[in-house]
């Protein structure tokens, strides 16, 4: 019959035996290797004195419950990170400072409980990596990589849900479509990299000008769109004009002054979302054809420059 305690030293898990006040009765080799505390230093001593600064209240309670119920208790590393603090080495490049541990506490007759420790760091690390990737992917799927604002797909989703809300709860909302004037000339004169910089700066300025509840997206090319919940046509036009003036006043790095044109339309209950987009597009087309650097609104089938001709 082999020495059973020796067998416990070959196991790649921590095994210790404690009394209800956490005096250590057994300490296997794995624990010595991980903590640097030898059998002699551990057995007969109290767990909290070996790890000053660590609270063992939870463990104490779990031991008490296990003895009381005559049944195992557990701690789960996805909830309680660890029971015995074991620093992880830097070479393993772990994202955790301390080893994550699943722990099973089992009563051993009267007044003693065994504690078995499973290292779950690798498992939880893999889980964390996947979760991070999911977050990144989620963000990528909804964001325009150049400007950081919503992309067209996200804009379409938001527009769909806004239409639903408007139809069901009688909410109103408006749409602005915005286009940089003479952007082709910027690309031709200064190159595409400079063009990208303009788009970024334009997005930053507009993003700062819209209200928090507004949804700002890059529509494609040099076109942007803004969804304005709870906003009338007039409210949207006022904001559009504010954006126009802010951009016209901006000194774009290496390029100087630039302008933009904006088309505005309000959603009308039960109309198709494509109708709303096309109305705003018509208004934008009007603004472009009437001298650019202006806002045009689509109001009950009529398109007008806002707040009058050649608004400056």
């Amino acid at each position: 019959m082999p020495d059973q305690k020796a067998i416990l030293d070959t196991i790649e898990n921590g095994i210790l035996v404690v009394t209800p006040d956490l005096q250590i009765r057994f300490w296997n080799r794995w624990l010595t290797l991980q903590t640097g505390i030898s059998k002699e230093e551990a057995v007969g001593h109290f767990l909290p004195t070996l790890f000053p600064g660590t609270s063992f209240n939870l463990l104490k309670r779990k031991v008490k419950i296990a003895l009381k119920l005559k049944s195992s208790t557990f701690t789960n590393s996805s909830v309680e990170k660890f029971i015995i603090p074991i620093k992880l080495h830097n070479i393993t490049k772990s994202i955790f400072h301390h080893m994550r541990q699943d722990v099973v506490i089992t009563p051993l007759g009267e007044g003693e409980a065994s504690i078995i420790i499973y290292d779950t760091s690798a498992l939880l690390e893999a889980k964390a990596v996947i979760q991070n990737q999911l977050l990144v992917m989620e963000k990528q799927a909804t964001t325009d990589t150049l400007t950081g604002c919503y992309n067209r797909k996200m804009f379409n989703d938001l527009l769909k849900s806004e239409v639903k809300k408007a139809d069901r709860y009688h909410h109103i909302f408006s749409l602005i479509i915005m286009d940089i004037d003479n952007f082709k000339a910027v690309n031709d004169t200064y190159g595409h990299l400079a063009g990208d910089e303009v788009l970024k700066e334009m997005a930053t300025i507009t993003g700062c000008t819209v209200r928090e509840s507004d949804l700002f997206a890059r529509w494609g090319g040099e076109e942007f769109s803004i969804l304005l919940p709870e906003t009338t046509l007039e409210g949207a036009a006022i904001l559009a004009d504010k954006i126009r003036r802010t951009i016209a006043a901006n000194d774009f790095s290496n390029i100087g002054n630039l302008t933009c044109s904006l088309g505005v339309a309000q959603y009308h209950k039960t109309e198709h979302r494509d109708t709303l987009i096309s109305n705003a597009d018509w208004a934008l087309y009007h603004a472009k054809n009437h001298g650019k650097n202006q806002v045009a609104v689509f109001d009950q089938g009529e398109i007008q420059t806002w707040p009058g001709a050649n608004g400056n």
Partner: peptide, 30 residues
């Protein structure tokens, strides 16, 4: 986890004991 562990072990553990048998619990997930 703590409450469910206690309820589970006592309700089922004690029931098993009353019915003259023993059961063992695996670690719980939440």
């Amino acid at each position: 986890l703590e409450i469910s562990n206690i309820l589970g072990s006592s309700c089922l553990g004690k029931l098993a004991q009353l019915l003259n048998t023993n059961i063992t619990f695996a670690p719980p997930a939440i």
